[in-house]
């Protein structure tokens, strides 16, 4: 499973830094981010509020400029200056779904217009008949009906609006979708609906996702691989199963402990693991993101690496015992 050599890298971040000016000072919102997203996978970015998840998503969408590094899409650099043609291609191939379905739709436009907007902007239809056929197909693919076309966003439930947002992205036939907390604002049951829908497109169309969230329980269900980000720094990357079986970085562990479990007995005796960087031993050389097992990366210096190695071997031994 972790043999990544035969997978096609669709998107890659290389040494990406993103800074903002804050109170006259430079503020590094994203610090030296490095990761690859393979075609056809769901790659998730988890971390607490303000950790830089949206900033990364917006950089991929070419909205936030980088202050260092580059972003490569299908082998070509898409960060910084690119030709108009390439720009058009990227805008089409990478679509975004937003957290708040209401805010991302024009309240005064009909559903038909909302879904057609990208087609209009890029003249991606032969004639009216073709455009309508495309809109109908996109609506159908998210479980909405052609008769919904003449309605307005406010006449839909939250889950339906989010599905309109997905239809709007899907009609562009993108290769990558950046889904920025697409379900955080939704009800538990509607969440389930939207997650299922995203999985369906992945299977049927080989779509690739960058999924942004702060809740590991959702991320576990939907992702192939997960990157954990803390204060702009990616601290751990692993395949989903590995991250849950062998979490190494203390911040990953604190995120794991914060997942609320639907069980009053267990929840009430649970101890929170609060991550406090100031209480950690940060001595030794500067840490970097290092591969500790194939596909499993952790942000550490050599001293920490040695500690993680001991811990990991211990966990692997215990796992082997359990599996017997």
């Amino acid at each position: 499973m972790s043999n990544s050599s035969n997978k096609e890298v669709l998107l890659s971040l290389k040494g990406v830094d993103i800074s903002f000016a804050k109170d006259g000072k430079k503020f590094r919102a994203v610090k030296n981010a490095n990761f690859d997203i393979y075609r056809g996978e769901t790659f998730s970015l988890v971390g607490e509020s303000g950790s830089g998840k949206t900033t990364i998503g917006r950089a991929i969408m070419r909205i936030n400029p980088l202050s260092a590094g580059e972003i490569i899409f299908k082998g070509k650099r898409i960060s910084g200056k690119i030709s108009k043609e390439e720009d058009m291609d990227v805008i089409r191939s990478i679509q975004m779904i937003f957290q708040d379905p209401a805010a991302s739709l024009n309240e005064r436009a009909t559903i038909e217009y909302c879904v057609s907007e990208g087609l209009y902007n890029f003249h991606l239809y032969k004639d009216e008949e073709d455009r309508i056929a495309k809109v109908d197909a996109a609506l159908e693919s998210v479980g909405l009906l052609p008769e919904h076309k003449s309605r307005y966003p406010h006449e839909f439930s939250g889950g339906q609006r989010q599905r309109v947002g997905i239809a709007r992205a899907m009609i562009m036939e993108p290769e990558l979708i950046v889904a920025d907390e697409p379900i955080s604002a939704l009800d538990v049951s509607i969440r389930a609906q939207v997650l299922n829908l995203m999985n369906k497109f992945k299977e049927e169309k080989g779509l690739t996702y960058l999924f942004i969230a702060h809740d590991l329980s959702v991320v576990r269900f939907i992702s192939d691989r997960i990157a954990v980000i803390h204060l702009g720094r990616i601290v751990e990357i692993a395949e989903t199963e590995d991250l849950f079986k062998y979490p190494l970085h203390p911040y990953t562990i604190s995120l794991l402990s914060a997942v609320p479990m639907p069980d009053p007995i267990i929840e009430k005796q649970k101890d929170l693991v609060v991550y406090d960087e100031s209480k950690r031993d940060l001595s030794g050389p500067k840490p970097i993101l290092q591969e500790i097992r194939p596909g499993h990366f952790v942000f550490a210096n050599d001293r920490e690496m040695a500690e993680y190695e001991v811990k990991l071997q211990q966990m692997e031994k215990e796992r082997a015992e359990l599996d017997k």
């Binding site: 538990v188 389930a192 609906q193 329980s217 959702v218 269900f221 989903t240 997942v259 639907p262």
Partner: peptide, 18 residues
């Protein structure tokens, strides 16, 4: 139904209940 749709109970590769 409410309990069944929790993502914590979801099996990867299968649809969540909704």
């Amino acid at each position: 139904a409410l309990l069944s749709s929790l993502p914590q109970l979801g099996e990867k590769g299968q649809d969540l209940y909704y």
